[in-house]
Simulated assay, not measured.
Amino acid sequence: MFDPKSDYALNKKDPDAIVYIDAAGTLTRLTLADFSSPEEFKRWKAWSDESYHQIENAGIALSKRTLSLHGLPEKATTVQSPEDTLVEALEQREREEMRRLLMEGLDNCLTSAQRRRLWLYFVDGLTVRQIAEAEGVQHPSIVECLAAAKKKLLEYLKRMV
């Protein structure tokens, strides 16, 4: 495929000139008329072809060994540090242990009514009024039950942790 910005391709495409693009982006052609003899032109043309070819191959070899990160999501290009991995693993173990303690505490230190109401309130997201209506009891009794359940559970967790 022809790359119009490639010195190598431009130079190869024009056998009657040494073609290059300068730093300002200007295309320059050196022809036989710019040299003192046809032999000198041929020598410099052969040298420029070989030089451009080596430069082109070096760029191709580099691009074959590299992966562009352009266009990849940021998450795909970030690498988690070993410290972050360790902290994450420790936090996960701590969460699992706390979950186990909470479930154990719900089962061991609360009455079935306290456990059920605490679950409805914190896990299912029901309001105190909704729980009271569903169970056919007064609002204050649900408030007292939840307060007692929280107190018991906190005391249990303090003993266990």
Rank of each mutant, 00 (worst) to 15 (best):
R100I: 03
T78I: 11
L27H: 13
S36G: 15
K13E: 12
K12D: 12
E83C: 04
E96K: 11
I18C: 00
W119R: 05
K12T: 04
S48A: 15
S63C: 11
T85F: 09
G25C: 04
Y8P: 00
A113Q: 04
V19K: 00
R43E: 13
E104F: 13
V128F: 01
A9Q: 05
L69I: 14
V79W: 06
K75D: 08
V161P: 00
R117V: 04
D3N: 15
V137K: 05
Y52E: 00
P15A: 02
L118Y: 00
C145A: 12
K151V: 04
K13G: 10
L126R: 06
D16G: 07
K158H: 08
M1N: 08
T127R: 09
H53N: 07
A61S: 14
E74L: 09
D49R: 08
T77S: 12
A61Y: 06
T31E: 09
D49P: 01
E56I: 02
T28Y: 03
R99S: 12
L126G: 00
S63G: 02
K13M: 10
R29P: 00
L10P: 00
K152A: 04
F2M: 09
F122V: 05
A148L: 09
L69D: 08
Q114C: 08
Q138E: 10
S6D: 05
G125W: 05
I21N: 02
T26H: 06
S36C: 12
R99Y: 06
E91A: 13
Y8Q: 03
E104L: 12
D7V: 01
V137Y: 01
A58D: 10
C145S: 07
E104D: 15
E91P: 03
Q138K: 15
K12P: 00
C109N: 01
D14M: 05
E104S: 13
P4M: 05
H53W: 03
E94I: 13
A89W: 06
L153R: 01
S6C: 10
R65M: 15
D107E: 14
A23L: 14
L120F: 06
E39V: 04
P15K: 04
E39H: 13
L69P: 00
P38V: 09
A17C: 09
A46M: 11
D22I: 12
E135Y: 11
R95K: 15
W44P: 00
L10T: 01
E39Q: 12
T77F: 06
L157F: 02
N57F: 11
L86E: 12
